[in-house]
């Protein structure tokens, strides 16, 4: 069929090609228009966020402020509203991300390098766990944490957060590690390097981009997590930004919406920037691997 088209292209090719390219242009314009309409729908709530953050009189409607000010930002830059929750978020998410990435890298190494009858069932279990709704086990987790006195502790919450991201991190890390050729390691082995040395000095540097993706992805997921700290932390001075934004501003009615918007921007910016760093590597293939988290 293709051959026929190519042969026929000799005499009438000019006309059909012109027709086709005109049709292509028309199609492109239609697609552009449709996409722009959809994009506008997605943009409206974001537009409210931006405009309200620089408007001290902001209400719930998208409105261009009379004069743009940074008053909202200066009003919320206090230890109570911004600094403590952000610091808590950083401590909580930073420590659990480190733990997740370290455990995932260690676990991925034997899974990627050695053969065993247990490797396949183990990985299938891991993959199965990535899909489980973590939300559903929060009630028993709360019960357990009360009994073992981990409730309202930062480290307890960090341990649980780390575990909740661990299955997907192991799965990703193992796939990235599979892409690193084994020959260099064999050279290291012959030079008498131990397994931890090989992992830290040879394998991990070679899969630097992969480790970065796992780290940042884990951090983004944890940074936005609301339910886990909402359940497991109680003291106001330990709450991360995801929960404090809810408790500070959740009492609708007397809310200063401009300040809420300003805080939302401060809280969201780190993860948006981080996403940009890894965006190129996050294709559909990555998403397909099971980026499912509640």
């Amino acid at each position: 069929m293709r051959a026929g088209v190519d042969e026929g292209g000799a005499d009438e090719g000019g006309r059909t090609r012109a027709g086709r390219s005109r049709r292509r242009t028309r199609q492109r314009l239609a697609a552009d228009a449709a996409l722009l309409a959809l994009a506008a729908a997605f943009a409206v709530p974001l537009l409210w966020l931006l405009l309200a953050s620089v408007d001290t009189q902001a209400d719930l409607r998208v409105r261009v402020p009379g004069s743009a000010t940074l008053d909202n930002f200066s009003a919320i830059l206090t230890p109570d509203i911004t600094f403590t929750p952000m610091l808590n978020s950083l401590l909580l998410c930073g420590s659990s991300t480190l733990l997740t990435v370290a455990c995932a890298a260690l676990a991925a190494y034997p899974l990627s390098r050695y053969r065993s009858r247990l490797a396949r069932p183990y990985l299938l279990t891991i993959l199965f766990t990535t899909c489980l709704p973590i939300t559903a086990i929060m009630v028993p987790v709360y019960g357990l944490f009360v009994q073992v006195n981990l409730i309202d502790t930062m480290y307890g919450t960090a341990l649980f957060l780390a575990t909740s991201q661990l299955p997907f991190a192991i799965w990703l890390m193992k796939n990235f590690m599979d892409g690193v050729p084994i020959t260099l390691e064999e050279a290291a082995w012959t030079d008498g390097a131990s397994m931890p040395q090989t992992l830290v000095r040879v394998v991990l540097p070679l899969m630097g981009p992969g480790v970065t993706v796992v780290t940042i992805y884990t951090f983004i997921m944890l940074w936005g997590n609301f339910f886990v700290p909402f359940m497991l932390l109680l003291s106001p001075d330990r709450l991360p930004a995801s929960v404090s934004i809810f408790t500070f501003f959740g009492n609708y009615g007397s809310v200063v919406y401009g300040q809420l918007a300003a805080f939302s921007i401060l809280y969201s910016t780190p993860v948006l920037l981080m996403y940009v760093l890894i965006a190129r590597r996050l294709g559909g293939g990555f998403a397909l691997a099971g980026a499912v988290k509640g």
Partner: peptide
């Protein structure tokens, strides 16, 4: 735009849509 909506923390998305 579509991806920004996705990367935003859940609670921020909730506030934005609440306002909407």
């Amino acid at each position: 735009l579509v991806i920004t909506a996705w990367v935003l923390p859940e609670i921020v998305a909730a506030f934005l849509l609440y306002a909407f």
